[in-house]
Amino acid sequence: MSKQEILINISGINRVYYDTTGKTTVALQDVDLDIRKGEFITFIGPSGCGKTTLLRLIAGLDSPQSGVVSIEGQPIEKPGYERGFVFQQAALFPWKTVEENIAIGLKARKVFKEKKQYIKDYIDLIGLTGFEKAYPHEISGGMAQRVAIARALINEPKVLLLDEPLGALDAFTRIELQTTIRRIWKKTGTTIVLVTHDVDEAVFLSDRIAIMTARPGRISEVITVNLKPERDRNDDEFIILRRRVLEKLELAGKHWSSRLIDPLEQPSISGVGEAI
């Protein structure tokens, strides 16, 4: 693993937000990270620690005050289809059917004619056969996220960026989709960067987990997940690792939990009851 090629290099990133009242928020401070080709890496941390900001920097939807994010050595300046992005609220185009949403990337890149036969493959891949002609308002939240993933994947991106795609879903749908995401990752071999605050999800899906702390946002530690490829949530090693991630998060949380923070913003600790 360690010998693997670097796909994305993040170095010396600082991102400060200035709002209209003059208040400044240090969303990211001195963040360095290498993302390897083909790996599944997860950013985990409490709300407001800069996960989305970091993901948007990779996508090119935002730019840092200092530091560089580069992909295959090229600095990232603007968004592009080789960095697919899935938003928390799916952001499907409501006026397009499932099929048309998936085809958007092909149309935008003007390769629709040559590649339209693949649309069906991606609908199969995400398990939405039979819903091709449905409009977004007619499908469930979980299905919408599946479409959003297929819509990004059809461009065969170098990296797929997932910003809490399962955050708004119920527990059952979430687990179902985690399995789908893992299957897709294995099948396509795409590098995936996932943002979540669900420890269980992070351990289930990732090769590596980057733990983030808030105010200022930084990466405090990167944990390598050495579990067997067929992951089992009830496996002892799985449970031990989940507890370790949780401890790190709590430790990281000490830096900010003394300040006034909405308890709802704490990281989710699903499944922790049986772990401890």
């Binding site: 939807l61 603007k78 968004p79 592009g80 289809y81 992005f85 185009f93 935008a108 890149r109 990004a152």
Partner: peptide
Amino acid sequence: KVYYEAALTLGANERF
């Protein structure tokens, strides 16, 4: 805004 951002990450240009 999120519609624009989604389109941009799918390869859209200004005209699109």
